[in-house]
Computed example of a mutant assay.
Amino acid sequence: MSQKAATSPRPPAPLVQFNGARPPTPDWFLKALDVPTDRGSVSVEDATICWKAWGKRGAPGLILVHGGVAHKDWWDSIAPFLSETRRVVALDLSGMGDSDHRDRYSMATYALEVLAAGQDGGAFEAGKPFLVGHSFGGFVSVATAMEHGDQLAGIAVLDSPIRPSQEQRRSSPPSRGGMIYNSFDAALARFRLLPEQGCENAFLLDHIARQSLKEITRPDGTQGWTWKFDPKLWDKLDYDRPPPADIVDALKTRIALFRGADSRLVNDEVWAFMGDLFGPETTMVSIPNAEHHLILDQPVAVAAGLEVLTGPGWG
């Protein structure tokens, strides 16, 4: 009779050890947070979509799209480095961050949100902008390139696993969120990455976690704290586009691929398939010492890669 292998206990959430205090933060990130930003919102199909931007209007544009159940502040350690010569706009997709929730979500609507936020935020004033998406945001970027790629200078997809069509996941990940916590610190202590992984930059985890929470009033009139994203987001998402591997020829702009070199989602097998799918002329960048959440693991390296990629010499 066989026995199941013992499983290791789930490690504690990464911010528990700080008891609500902010972890030590390096000077480079404090300086990045001091870079001025503009904020605004735009209406897309009856939902308010929030954005923020760095850099001067009229500079070449760059639009940043966060991952699933994330938000625009995930880019705070990257966007400031790119803003000296660019107008950088990051948005909250509907159902996430400060943007409105919807009854239903779709890739077609997310593509419209990307373009509208980019337009409103000033990313199109110098011509066609580049579009960068991490994880779920990478799939949104691919969908945008398929429908509206003629309006873009190119896209960069960061650790979004594109697999053979028959292997591409077409169902939603498990729902999460919806809990109401009695205090901000209690909620903060529950923050975890999805998919879970270690991350040495606790100051970045703390920063994005603090921007992920909102205070609400319970039905009994008491106050509590909960996550900003729609807890039913995945149940309400319509998969209204073919698997990415089936639409490579439909992309109306060029594409570059990034991954964390230690990513469990874009592993060597998936990475090799993506290279074969998009062809030898495609720019492919593996960021060392980074897992799926490469924009948190190695933000300066990612910023440097995007600096070169979105400069005048690419392509």
Rank of each mutant, 00 (worst) to 15 (best):
R169P: 11
R170C: 06
R176E: 01
R176N: 05
G122F: 11
D206P: 08
E125Y: 02
F203S: 08
A116W: 08
R192H: 11
G198I: 04
I208Y: 12
F136A: 02
S141Y: 06
P173I: 04
A143R: 07
S183K: 11
A209Q: 12
L152Q: 02
G138L: 06
G133P: 00
M179H: 15
N182P: 14
R169T: 14
E200V: 09
L188G: 15
A153R: 11
G137D: 00
H148W: 12
F139M: 08
G149I: 05
P161W: 10
L205G: 13
E200I: 02
S171Y: 14
V157M: 04
P195H: 06
L188W: 13
R163C: 09
L193G: 09
P174V: 10
S212T: 03
S141G: 08
H134C: 03
L205D: 10
F130D: 03
S160G: 04
D150E: 14
R190G: 01
L194T: 15
F191D: 05
H207D: 04
S171L: 13
Q197I: 02
G137V: 00
I208S: 12
F191G: 10
R163W: 07
I155W: 05
S172I: 03
Q151L: 15
I155Y: 02
A202F: 15
V132I: 14
F136G: 00
S172T: 10
S135R: 08
Q151F: 05
I162Q: 12
L131G: 01
L205Q: 13
Q168M: 11
N182A: 15
L158H: 07
A116G: 03
H148I: 05
L204T: 07
I155F: 07
V157K: 09
